[in-house]
Design a protein around this nucleic acid. Structure first.
Length: 918
RNA sequence: GCCUUGGUGGUGGAAUUGGUAGACACGCAGGACUUAAAAUCCUGUGAGCAGCAAUGUUCAUGCGGGUUCAAUUCCCGCCCGAGGUACCA
């Protein structure tokens, strides 16, 4: 019987689905293991061959764990809210739900063909009301909570109100938007609206006027991680800064815990480092500088308190509130001018335009250490959003201040002995202080400490830790997202009662903003609760993906996001597989979301993802043809330099091994029908190639469905793993797939003789057993270290050796089938049944290897003299190092080399004589 | 700039963490089977030198040093690529 992969794969996929083979339930008798993939956004383009890489790897791991006796949770779902479906809806009028459902169906078909062990009973879609009910629920919990800095956790806002009632807020140490102080008596006489405004200051999900990334083209605000280089990640449209009233999540309150949590989880150092940088902790001090001839002062943040004697000017961000306080009438016009020019620039222009600009405010400040009077400037190199929006400039030791000082001719005072600041600043934190009053003679590190102490003792400011991490902007002016369960009364937001969730996304006539500029939900009829207007914004993409891993544990629960029982059993994700691109978005939001729910006691683990593996991207490998300019003649790569040619992308599917199928090329596009070719000397047309993103427009997309039809899913799975290390990005190149396919056919043939199934019950020989046990050992350690590429090699070696031994014995082949099954589940299942087993191979157990079988009785030891192998010596393997040494010394050949002298050394490593030094 | 990664044959990549560098696969070359093709199988394949040959020998893991009997692996200094981040004070 031939290896008919199409028949086999179809048969077992059907069997697995019909018999619910991968359905998972809580089973207290087994240890649990939770393997999660980052769920996909179902895009209209479908899956290309790069998408399933991570799914295959996690599938192998989850099957392996199951074979080792674990109760494995391995679910899949869809991150279904998102901009592309909505943009498509705007263009075509088709409801995003229809587009999304269609895409999901297509994804499911493609995924099903690859033989994954997903428990589809647990499927979630973020756009379904049963699911987003819990996204809305979580939002209400955040709305009703504040972050207590003393307890370092979230607590209910109701508790806060009780304290205000009895003692005001003087004792409250909470994360808030703005510091305000009031007594109990003051609280009592406040109106409901005033009270709500104060509470808003504390809520973890809060409404505030904040600087946001506004994307006019998308008509919505975006979070920081959704903007790259001043352009939106989706669509690549310009983004500008704007002050708007928006929902935000007080994620900054969790900065330290998000940082500390990284120490407890098994992620790569690179990823942890990316998160550390994003959180951006910096230790320093806030120091007050008095404004000359005024009672007011400016507070700056600095990590270099030691350099305060070198402050020669101050700089305010253009948006800073201090600007109005220090501006003098004389300078007014010039300042206005500057502020306007800054405001006109978009974020992107501001980044692109690194020209030094600024304006003198007219005001002066007093250096609190030296008492000197220093000018205050305004410049956009200082950011309003970080620290206090004002800095003390130390041009000698900060390159940005240096450039500014040089440009405007401001003085530069060096503070470190022997440093040269004539051409550039000296930014390093090393050296001995000078020109610095009481700090003179100290090292920089000592001076930083001492200056901070001085600040604290003399009440010039406070020692402070700053974080770069901003609160997450949580509202979007779009249609296709979760509606906020919030209504407005007297201008203030109130939550819709939890028992009335979900709040369904309403129907609208168009998916565009209203004529008055309100978000699309402004078009919904009766968009009210109890007669009050409901929030018109929707939630951002990351809302639905922040807690989906919890929902998989208990996806049909109508009473809770996840039941206590399910959460206590599954706890957290043991292995999370996904792309690195979510390092500063999803992977921060999820950790925050989880910590928040942990604070409230809804989940038992403080970190959601114990181990995380980033699979690399699969890039496309593009092919090129060379057209002679002004003609329809194409010249092969080897001869192209003799002509004036243009390089054109050609569909990789009509190129084999970089050789163009010229007949298919002519049929590819009408304009090439009359194409002529100048071939290389071997009579072939050779194409050029390069590695690029896999994309339709570059004609380098390879569709998994096509591969499955030609080679089968098992071959595709093996080949994707064989391509290279899992975590490394690599180009897809179909040409190597034959080797892997050949391996599967050889494996199949081991079970057959003269075309008929034939496996003998004879006992295996020592060498056959050795092949099996070596393979088992190797695969086990490879899977545990995610080295799937070397696993495939090990299989190939194993099958080649068994082929040479003509081994077709059940004793060897049966366990080997189990070992291969995580990689190639269909063929393994088929052979497993042919071997006479009654139940699915997924219920088998992964074989163990026997070290005793692996050890040989004796070994030919290479004996090297001064680094060169001279002869081999047979010594029993049981011999210890001293015995080996003895043998070598007494050997006649050794004595020939040493000329009877005693060798200096015999070096034995792991039972091997690697060198004898004479 | 900073942080994180990598750099090994014609190609993708191995190397049990200091112990025979190049496993496995692709490609290429030659051969077997076949009327022929496909499929399959076998052999060879880092480079140089010597030899009819078996084989011997030298050089090779981005570059330059160092430690060691022994370095792709450890240390120091450079060069190049990829990813992240960027007026974060």
């Amino acid at each position: 019987m031939e290896y008919n992969f199409l028949r086999i794969e179809e048969k077992w996929q059907k069997y697995w689905a019909q018999n619910n083979i991968y359905k998972t339930e809580i089973d207290e008798s087994k240890p649990k293991y939770y393997v999660l993939d980052m769920f996909p956004y179902p895009s209209g383009a479908g899956l290309h061959v790069g998408h399933p890489l991570g799914y295959i790897a996690s599938d192998i791991y989850s099957r392996y764990k199951r074979l080792n006796g674990f109760n494995v949770l391995h679910p899949m779902g869809y991150d279904a809210f998102g901009l592309p479906a909505e943009q498509f809806a705007i263009d075509t009028g088709q409801h995003p739900e229809i587009t999304t459902e269609k895409n999901i169906k297509r994804y499911r078909e493609q995924l099903d063909k690859l033989g994954f062990a997903f428990d589809w009973n647990r499927e979630v879609k973020t756009c379904s009301p049963e699911y987003y009910k819990w996204t809305q629920w979580a939002f209400i919990q955040m709305f009703c909570s504040y972050y207590c800095k003393d307890a370092q956790r979230a607590r209910p806002v109701s508790e806060l109100m009780e304290i205000f009632e009895t003692e005001g807020n003087s004792r409250i140490n909470a994360a808030c938007t703005e510091e305000i102080r009031f007594t109990a008596d003051e609280w009592k006489i406040k109106t409901e609206k005033e009270r709500q405004e104060i509470l808003m200051n504390y809520r973890i999900a809060y409404l505030a006027d904040t600087m946001v990334n506004w994307c006019p083209r998308l008509g919505t605000v975006l979070a920081n991680d959704e903007v790259v280089n001043g352009l939106s990640v989706r669509g690549g449209y310009p983004v500008e800064q704007r002050k708007m009233r928006q929902w935000s999540l007080r994620i900054s309150a969790y900065a330290q815990r998000l940082l500390d949590g990284l120490e407890t989880i098994d992620w790569t150092e690179a990823l942890k480092e990316t998160q550390r940088n994003w959180i951006g902790r910096s230790e320093g001090a806030e120091i007050r500088f008095g404004i000359a001839d005024s009672n007011e002062s400016i507070t700056v943040f600095t990590t270099r308190a030691d350099t305060i004697f070198g402050v020669t000017f101050m700089v305010l961000a253009p948006e800073s509130e201090y600007v109005a306080k220090v501006a003098t009438p004389v300078q007014k016009a010039e300042i206005e001018n500057y502020l306007n020019s800054v405001k006109r620039k978009t974020e992107r222009e501001r980044i692109a335009d690194r020209k030094i600009s600024g304006v003198f405010s007219g005001g002066y400040a007093i250096n609190p250490f030296s008492g000197e009077k220093i000018p205050i400037w305004i410049s956009d190199y200082v950011l309003a959003g970080y620290g206090t929006g004002a800095i003390m400039a130390v041009p000698a030791h900060d390159s940005r201040d240096y450039a500014f000082a040089k440009h405007f001719g401001l003085p530069i005072i060096p503070l470190i002995e022997g440093c040269d600041t004539s051409n550039e600043s000296f930014d390093a934190k090393e050296g001995i202080m000078t020109n610095s009053g009481f700090l003179d003679g100290l090292t920089v590190q000592e001076a930083i400490r001492k200056a901070k102490e001085y600040v604290r003792e003399n009440e010039l400011g406070t020692v402070k830790v700053n974080y770069r991490l901003r609160d997450a902007i949580f509202s979007r002016q779009r249609y296709w997202g979760e509606p906020f369960p919030i209504y407005y009364r007297d201008g203030m937001p109130y939550p819709i009662p939890e028992n009335e969730l979900p709040l369904h996304l309403p129907e609208v006539d168009k998916f565009l903003p209203t004529e008055s500029g309100e978000p699309p939900l402004g078009r919904a009829k009766d968009w009210t609760y109890d007669g009050y207007r409901i929030e018109l914004n929707t939630m951002p993409g990351f809302a639905g993906s922040s807690a989906y891993y919890l929902r998989y544990m208990d996806p049909h629960n109508t009473e809770a996001l996840v039941s206590k029982k399910a959460n206590e059993y599954w706890k957290s994700v043991d292995l999370y597989m996904g792309g690195i691109e979510h390092a500063t978005g999803h992977l921060i939001y999820s950790r925050f979301w989880n910590k928040f729910l942990y604070d409230l006691g809804y989940v038992v683990e403080s970190e959601p993802f114990k181990k995380l593996v980033n699979q690399g991207m699969i890039q496309g490998r593009s092919n090129f043809v060379y057209r002679i300019n002004g003609s329809n003649t194409f010249v092969s790569k080897g001869l192209k330099d003799n002509y004036d040619v243009s390089e054109l992308h050609v569909d990789v599917n009509i190129v084999d091994n970089d050789i163009l199928d010229t007949k298919r090329f002519k049929r590819w596009k009408p304009e090439y029908e009359t194409a002529e070719f100048i071939l290389d000397s071997d009579g072939e047309y050779h194409c050029g190639w390069s590695v690029e993103k896999m994309s339709k427009s570059l004609y380098n997309v390879v569709n998994p469905d096509d591969i499955v039809v030609t080679y089968g899913a098992d071959t595709l799975r093996l080949y994707e793993m064989f391509l290279g290390p899992l975590e490394q990005s690599k180009p897809w190149d179909t040409k190597g797939i034959d080797g892997v396919h050949r391996f599967l056919r050889k494996f199949w043939r081991l079970f057959h003789s003269d075309g008929e199934f034939y496996v003998s019950d004879e006992p295996a020989t020592d060498s056959e057993l050795k092949v099996l046990h070596r393979t088992v050992k190797k695969i086990r350690s490879d899977i545990e270290s995610f080295s799937f590429n070397t696993s495939v090699s090990a299989f190939m070696i194993c099958v080649n050796e068994l082929g040479d031994l003509k081994c077709n014995k059940k004793q060897i082949l049966e366990p080997l089938t189990v070992v291969i099954s995580p990689f190639a589940p269909h063929i393994a299942e088929e052979l497993w049944r042919m071997l006479g087993n009654k139940t699915s191979i997924v219920n088998a157990s992964f074989p163990k290897h026997d070290e005793n079988i692996l050890i040989e009785n004796s070994f030919e030891y290479p004996v090297s003299f001064n680094g060169k192998t001279r002869f081999k010596l047979e010594i029993p393997l049981s011999a210890d190092t001293d015995e080996i040494r003895e043998k070598v010394l007494n050997n006649a050949q050794t004595q020939k080399f040493t000329e009877g002298k005693e060798p200096k050394k015999v070096i034995v490593v792991k039972g091997k004589i690697v060198n004898v030094v004479i």
